[in-house]
Amino acid sequence: MKKSEVPQDNGRVFEKGSRELYYAVDENGEYTTALSTGWDAKNVVQDHTMQELQERIDRARADVRDNKVSPIVYFMELRRMDWQLVSDYTGIWKWRVKRHSKPAVFRRLNERVLAKYADTFEITVDQLKNYRGD
């Protein structure tokens, strides 16, 4: 890539006040560096990924509302986590986390266990307990 071809298609990093460094060749064929504000190809896949994640979050929200899953699933998706990651952060075995995703089991959880989840999701126990998917 030539230095003059380094893309300047304002992307997410740039929106947050930074640019990215590229290695590119100058007119004499020597390698040099240039800053880029972003690249369309990346913006497109990035946007697509965000859309998919939002769909997962929306689905989890609807499932909580329909009483199919507990709020743990919603906050797991919201924080971009999966079962293993929730298990790693809470210190609760994965099969137990999965069990806690059933609304009936979730309702019987004590404060101590709820606090572990709330901590992991960076919310209060009340916010976790009272989330109804609306």
């Binding site: 990215e20 590229y22 290695y23 990346k42 896949v45 697509h48 990924t49 998919e52």
Partner: peptide, 26 residues
Amino acid sequence: YYLAQMVRMQEEIGTGGGGFRYIYSA
């Protein structure tokens, strides 16, 4: 979705495909 993840891994913040080839050329 898989493809999007692949391209993200490839070109995100200089890592991976083109970005790494240019660093290696340099």
